[in-house]
Computed example of a mutant assay.
Amino acid sequence: MNHDNRHSVSVAGVVIDSDGRALLIQRRDNGHWEAPGGILERDEDITTGLRREVREETGLEVEAEALTGVYKHMTRGIIALVFRCRAISGTLTENDESRAFRWVTADEVTSVASEAFAIRVLDAMRDRDRPAIRQHDGVHLIGSAPI
């Protein structure tokens, strides 16, 4: 198998509060605002990886409520599974991966996050009967209507 053709799988949790706002983290490595998440470890199941990534980046324990989207970063070969989540315990805590937190409304998401990452949050905030399936180049959606 050609290793250049492999994909990696990541997970992200869009944590929604009781006011319907979504939690974004500001990443330390690039300053971008995104939902917490990261690459799954090879030996962990999807739910365990999701909970681990959100806990590592926020300090929150979460429960996944629904798979809200599947996204492919076409240039890097990353498949992202995004879930709507609710916090069940913990306290927001800055760490090596996140330097700030922000609760945003659907109207605010596009002003702080790039199109490719804002759509993940918006898809999770919408009441849909099935997950969205989208592709992007790391900044913009490809082959989809703009958000």
Rank of each mutant, 00 (worst) to 15 (best):
Ser89His: 13
Arg134Asp: 12
Glu97Phe: 04
Ser98Glu: 09
Glu61Gln: 09
Arg42Tyr: 11
Ala64Val: 05
Glu65Cys: 03
Glu61Lys: 02
Leu92Lys: 00
Gly31His: 14
Arg28Gly: 03
Arg134Tyr: 15
His32Arg: 15
Asn2Glu: 07
Val70Glu: 09
Glu53Tyr: 01
Leu81Tyr: 02
Asp17Leu: 14
Asp127Lys: 10
Leu67Pro: 07
Ala35Glu: 07
Val9Gln: 07
Asn30Ser: 04
Met1Ile: 15
Glu63Asn: 08
Ile25Glu: 00
Glu115Ala: 00
Arg102Ser: 04
Ala113Cys: 13
Arg120Ile: 06
Gln26Lys: 14
Gly49His: 03
Arg52Glu: 14
Arg99Val: 03
Arg21Ser: 10
Arg76Gln: 03
His140Ile: 02
Met1Lys: 05
Ser98Trp: 04
Val82Leu: 00
Pro146Arg: 11
Val54Trp: 00
Leu81Pro: 01
Glu57Asn: 11
Gly59Trp: 05
Thr58Ala: 12
Gly38His: 14
Gly38Thr: 08
Ala12Val: 02
Arg134Lys: 13
Ile147Asn: 02
Gly31Ser: 05
Ser111His: 07
Glu57Ser: 10
Arg55Glu: 13
Ala87Pro: 06
Arg126Leu: 10
Leu67Gly: 14
Gly20His: 14
Glu53Ser: 11
Ile78Gln: 11
Arg28Ala: 08
Ile46Asp: 05
Val121Gln: 11
Arg27Gly: 09
Ala118Val: 08
Ala132Asn: 08
Ala118Gln: 03
Arg21Cys: 05
Gly69Gln: 05
Gly13Thr: 03
Pro36Met: 08
Val62Asn: 05
Thr91Leu: 10
Ser18Arg: 07
Arg130Pro: 04
Gly20Pro: 11
Ser144Gly: 03
Asp123Asn: 10
Trp103Asp: 05
Asp107Pro: 08
Gly77His: 05
Gly59Met: 07
Glu34Phe: 01
Asp137His: 03
Glu61Met: 09
Leu67Thr: 08
Glu65Gly: 02
Arg55Asn: 08
Glu63Gln: 06
Ile78Arg: 13
Arg55His: 11
Thr68Gln: 15
Arg51Tyr: 01
Thr48Gln: 11
Leu24Gly: 00
Lys72Val: 10
Ala106Leu: 03
Arg55Tyr: 08
Trp33Asp: 02
Val11Thr: 11
Thr110Glu: 08
Gln135Pro: 09
Gln26Asp: 01
Glu44Gly: 02
Ile119Asp: 14
Glu65Arg: 04
Ala22Phe: 00
Ser144Met: 03
Thr75Pro: 11
His140Gln: 12
Ile88Pro: 02
Glu94Tyr: 10
Ile16Gly: 02
Asp107Gly: 09
Gly13Tyr: 07
Ala145Met: 09
Gly59Asn: 04
Val70Met: 13
Leu50Met: 10
Glu97Lys: 08
Ser18Ile: 12
Ser89Asn: 12
Glu34Cys: 10
Thr58Trp: 10
Thr48Arg: 13
Asn5Ala: 11
Arg130Val: 07
Arg84Tyr: 11
Arg76Asn: 10
Trp33Ile: 12
Leu92Glu: 06
Arg21Ile: 15
Gly37Tyr: 00
Ile147Trp: 01
Phe117Cys: 11
Leu67Phe: 14
Ala64Glu: 10
Ala64Phe: 07
Leu81Phe: 02
Glu44Met: 09
Ser18Trp: 03
Ala116Glu: 02
Arg42Trp: 13
Gly38Ala: 06
Val62Thr: 00
Gly138Lys: 12
Met74Glu: 04
Gly138Leu: 00
Thr75Cys: 13
Arg28Phe: 01
Arg130Thr: 02
Gln26Trp: 01
Phe101Asp: 01
Glu34Ser: 14
Arg27Cys: 04
